[in-house]
């Protein structure tokens, strides 16, 4: 057990003090650096983000600018939080996002270093906030099934075995946080792209476009400046949803298959249905 701290009546522990070294950077083109802060009175029942909230309340009252960091759902599913804690994206626990990390994990008096995701494709917006739109652009390149609203056949017309459905679900559970990129020394987005490609390629609905999809998404990934996969599996180690690197193998197979079949990349999508130009 890593938790130290004083024992209070009723067994309730309190961490008295932490030293935080936090990356501060005013804007994308300004120089940043680590700034040291002290926080006292941190309860072990606080989440890591609640600890940062406490720091920010202190800073605001002292007339300083609070630390910018991204957060929203605070239950590990929206993929907003994006902190590198002591060198590890999402911190020391496996299979969780930063918002699900609790202070009982840290020893009293510890120094914690907090940095943003670092990758060429993720420019810093401010402090710990980065711009992850590159992931959206990869999705826009082909991470969908082109099906119009309306006229879908009954959901049970398509029988999908439990195993296939579970595999697709394993891949689809990616929350798009980008920790895989932040952990990779090449800043590769292979695990992200693999999860998306595998999700749709595993399901029969996704099969008709699988060739075009994998080519388009891999090309978009390269265009965005993500590096290539070095087979170190650091991505899998930090993934808060435990997405397996075997999906990268699946991505490679899909890509190879598409290459052999010699896909023609469509320049533009078809015009909107019902319209004639």
């Amino acid at each position: 057990m890593l938790v130290a701290g004083r024992k209070r009546r009723g067994g309730y522990r309190r961490i008295v003090k932490l030293t935080l070294r936090i990356w501060r950077q005013r804007g994308p083109n300004e120089r940043g650096g680590l700034v040291t802060y002290q926080v006292d009175d941190i309860s072990p029942d606080m989440s890591f983000l609640e600890m940062l909230d406490a720091l920010n309340q202190q800073l605001i009252m002292a007339g300083e600018e609070p630390v910018a960091f991204e957060h929203d759902c605070r239950e590990g599913i929206c993929g907003s939080c994006s902190l590198v804690i002591d060198g590890v994206p999402h911190g020391p626990d496996r299979g969780v996002t930063t918002c699900q990390l609790y202070m009982r994990r840290f020893a009293d008096g510890k120094t914690i270093t907090i940095e943003p995701w670092r990758a060429r494709a993720f420019p810093i917006v401010k402090d710990l906030v980065v711009d992850r739109r590159a992931l959206d652009r990869i999705m826009q390149a082909g991470g969908y099934i082109s099906v119009n609203t309306g006229g879908a056949v009954d959901g049970n017309t398509l029988l999908i075995g439990k195993e296939e459905a579970e595999t697709a679900m394993d891949a689809a559970s990616c929350i798009g946080c980008g920790a895989c990129v932040a952990a990779c020394k090449n800043a590769s987005a292979m695990l992200f792209v693999a999860a998306k490609v595998a999700h749709l390629a595993t399901l029969p609905q996704g099969k008709p476009e699988r060739t075009r999809r994998v080519m388009a998404m891999v090309q978009a990934m390269d265009r965005e400046g993500f590096g290539s996969c070095g087979n170190q599996y650091e991505c899998e180690a930090v993934c808060p949803k435990n997405i397996s690197v075997r999906f990268i193998a699946l991505l490679n197979r899909e890509y190879l298959r598409a290459g052999i079949l010699g896909t023609k990349m469509p320049a533009q999508s078809d015009p909107p249905h019902g319209e004639s130009y």
Binding site: Y144, I145, V147, A152, V153, G155, I160, G161, K162, E164, A165, A168, M169, A172, H199, L200, L203, Q205, G206
Partner: peptide, 8 residues
């Protein structure tokens, strides 16, 4: 149709 992986 959009590929939502519902439980089966």
């Amino acid at each position: 149709a959009l590929g939502v992986p519902f439980a089966r």
